[in-house]
Computed example of a mutant assay.
Amino acid sequence: MESTRPQAVQLDAQPGHAIRRLHQISVGIFHQETEDLNVTPVQYAILQTVRDQPGCDQRTLAGRIALDTSTTAGVVDRLEARGLLRRRVSPEDRRVRLLALTPAGELLLAQTLPGMERTQERILEPLNPEQRQQFMALLLQLVTENNDLSRAPGKRPR
């Protein structure tokens, strides 16, 4: 009797699995490189984005880092409680809170940058310079072309 079960696809041959594994590796390296700073990759992304776009609101921030608004709000709450971010009421709309780094947030971001840069280097270390360029171009193409399929699509500034 023949089996009617579909033929299995090798897990390691599936791009989604490889992307998930690379994300795990990326986060692991980030934590190794920044372990004494008590910062996560998402916290780093928020601090960097607020520094680059001071006065942005949480909804704009969430779109810039492609994170859902409720998760973004929780991370912002924790960063504010640590004294790294501050919120102020928007003069145009009192329901909107505008974000800015505090001096402590600026300091933490400056301390995190070298570890973040080492993380990026370690992730790409197995590739030669040409492969790195190709990998990043293809990766960004996949992210851009599939952006609308995300539960939290990224929104780049116009």
Rank of each mutant, 00 (worst) to 15 (best):
E2C: 06
T4Y: 09
T4I: 04
R5V: 05
A8H: 09
A8M: 10
Q10A: 04
L11Q: 07
D12T: 15
P15V: 00
H17V: 12
H17R: 12
L22V: 13
L22Q: 10
L22I: 13
H23W: 13
Q24F: 14
V27L: 01
V27G: 00
I29D: 00
H31E: 08
T34L: 00
D36W: 09
V42F: 07
Q43V: 10
A45W: 12
I46C: 02
Q48P: 09
V50P: 02
R51W: 11
D57W: 15
D57T: 11
Q58M: 14
Q58I: 15
L61E: 05
A62E: 07
L67H: 11
T71P: 01
T71D: 00
T72W: 01
T72D: 00
A73W: 14
A73V: 11
A73T: 15
A73F: 09
G74T: 10
V75A: 00
V76P: 01
D77N: 14
R78M: 04
R78V: 08
E80C: 09
E80H: 12
L84C: 07
L84M: 04
R86A: 02
R87K: 13
R88A: 05
V89D: 00
S90D: 06
P91M: 00
E92G: 08
D93R: 15
D93P: 04
R95D: 06
V96P: 01
R97K: 13
L99S: 02
A100R: 14
P103I: 10
L107K: 14
L109D: 02
A110L: 08
Q111C: 02
G115Y: 10
T119H: 08
Q120A: 05
Q120L: 11
E121S: 04
R122A: 03
L124R: 10
E125R: 15
P126S: 00
N128Y: 12
P129Q: 01
P129Y: 05
Q133K: 15
F135K: 08
A137V: 12
L138T: 13
L140E: 07
L142K: 12
L142M: 13
T144N: 04
T144Q: 05
E145T: 15
N147F: 09
N147T: 13
N147C: 04
D148V: 08
S150C: 07
R151Q: 05
P153C: 03
K155E: 07
P157L: 11
R158C: 06
R158N: 08
